[in-house]
């Protein structure tokens, strides 16, 4: 099996900051508003998501970054309504294509998963069933959503999904252990897109893969997204991957979105002091052995600092920051930032 993925890579080049914003305002397929999640632990209440809001247009790719433990996976699980006790979704709406997922009854929500919104979890490739063939797992997924679908239509759908992730139709009859890591990861993507969802959330889909396989998987997601025109949320830590892949970047800090901007704005002119520190900590080949991490520890969700949660680590912190919580403001071009430094310049959200 030989394949040339260059074509896929080349057509991925349609990334343009202004186009991204136009698409978003023209028609957003996803609107997340005021999403809140709390974990009620033995040590106390941890507010893992605090008033998270953003929108995404069809065909847009959003990168979600932020410190380990800042709430990225929690956000994905909340959007899927898959938060388990002691966690609780305490508010907000997730509107996909006009439907608020939070308002659906459990049964309808079950159908919406995969059908409207698909989630490829952290470590997905370990989640395939080891004793059933890949094909059977795909057929089951379709049947549970489309009980009246005929056999040949189901097969068509499976084959189409496999083809679109560049897998041979032979994979249909194989077991998970017969596939390499990258192939398993692509199977998970194929299952994710079986029903052509409007929104795909991929949680660190490639952090376990080598760079070559990583590139194949990302090119796959890219191509599939082009075909079904879905919005994609890519959760991850790899800023290199973000730079190469997404249109917009959202930065999460202690459960809040502190900045949302186009990928170009984020890499060339980050606004929030945390984003600035994040961008300047990126490695390159010119400064060998220089480690520029952000000093200080991530805050405890159980005891968040007063005012701005970043203030103990922020070089610009003043009295105001220590006592008053900053609100999100919109800056020129539509980017948003949650920091007092931009309160004058920006437009308050309501």
């Amino acid at each position: 099996m030989m394949m040339d993925t260059k074509a896929a890579g080349a057509q991925a080049g349609s990334r343009n900051a202004t186009a991204a914003y136009d698409a978003a305002s023209a028609k957003s397929v996803l609107q997340v508003k005021g999403l809140e999640v709390t974990y009620y632990t033995d040590l106390g209440r941890a507010k893992a998501l605090d008033d998270v809001s953003f929108t995404l247009g069809a065909g847009e790719k959003l990168g979600m970054v932020g410190e380990s433990g800042s709430g990225k996976s929690t956000m994905a699980l909340a959007m899927m309504r898959m938060i388990k006790p002691p966690g609780r979704i305490e508010g907000g709406s997730v509107i996909v294509d006009g439907t608020d997922l939070m308002a659906l009854d459990d049964d309808t929500m079950r159908r919406a998963r995969l059908d409207k919104i698909a989630y490829i979890p952290q470590g997905a490739m370990n989640s395939l069933n080891p004793v059933t063939r890949i094909g059977a797992q795909m057929v089951d997924a379709i049947k549970s959503h489309m009980p009246r679908e005929g056999r040949s239509a189901i097969m068509d759908r499976c084959m189409h999904a496999l083809r679109s992730v560049d897998l041979d139709s032979g994979v249909f009859r194989m077991y998970a252990h017969e596939l390499s890591g990258g192939m398993k990861q692509r199977v998970c993507i194929a299952i994710g897109i079986l029903l052509e969802p409007k929104v795909i959330i991929a949680d660190e889909p490639t952090s376990a893969l080598d760079v070559v396989t990583q590139r194949q998987v990302m090119e796959t997601i890219d191509r599939v997204q082009d075909q079904i025109n879905a919005a994609v949320i890519l959760i991850g830590h790899d800023m290199g991957l973000m730079a190469q892949f997404v249109d917009k970047v959202a930065v999460m800090y202690a459960g809040r979105l502190v900045e949302v901007a186009s990928v170009r704005e984020m890499f060339t002119d980050p606004k929030h002091p945390y984003s600035q520190a994040l961008i300047s900590s990126l490695p390159n080949l010119d400064n060998k052995g220089v480690f520029q991490g952000i000093p200080g520890l991530a805050p405890s969700l159980l005891r968040l600092p007063s005012g701005c949660a970043f203030h103990p680590r922020c070089p610009h912190a003043e009295e105001l920051q220590r006592t008053v919580r900053p609100e999100s403001v919109t800056l020129a071009g539509g980017r948003t930032v949650t920091c007092h430094l931009y309160a004058e310049e920006g437009q308050r959200h309501v």
């Binding site: 099996m1 030989m2 394949m3 040339d4 993925t5 260059k6 890579g9 080049g13 560049d166 390499s180 080598d210 760079v211 070559v212 990583q214 590139r215 194949q216 990302m218 790899d238 800023m239 290199g240 991957l241 973000m242 730079a243 190469q244 892949f245 990928v263 170009r264 890499f267 060339t268 961008i279 990126l282 390159n284």
Partner: peptide, 26 residues
């Protein structure tokens, strides 16, 4: 060379992977 070429750089002007990937044989 393929590995180094496939490093995704956090640099918007340095695009990912100039060389096509030839998949490994089954």
């Amino acid at each position: 060379q393929l590995l180094v070429d496939s490093i995704p750089w956090p640099n918007l002007n340095q695009r990912w992977g100039e060389h096509p990937i030839i998949a490994r044989e089954a």
